[in-house]
């Protein structure tokens, strides 16, 4: 069973990488980009029957740092 965990920076946390990419997009002539935030996707191949609670625990214990990041779980 394929599952995706999407990790994003919490709003209000400065994302210098996103700012730099935003700047580069503007430099390439892409107008109208209001903001860029960069996160990461973790693709998990899990044994059937892995519970949402277990995946949530994986996120809290390792995949995301909840001091600065949010996460959401998407079943493929």
């Amino acid at each position: 069973m394929k599952t995706r965990v999407i990790v994003t920076l919490k709003s209000g946390v400065l994302d210098p990488q996103g700012k730099a990419v935003h700047h580069a997009l503007t430099g390439l002539g892409f107008d109208g980009v209001n903001d860029v935030r960069i996160g990461k996707i973790v693709e998990l191949d899990l044994a059937d029957g892995t519970s949402e609670a277990q995946i949530d625990e994986m996120c809290r214990k390792l995949l995301a740092n909840t001091v600065i990041e949010n996460y959401r779980i998407e079943q493929a």
Binding site: V13, P16, A20, V67, I68
Partner: peptide, 17 residues
Amino acid sequence: LTEAGMLPGALMRNATL
């Protein structure tokens, strides 16, 4: 130590990159 929860907060990428 912050990742282990032994100290609060987090160390992010330098603001200047």
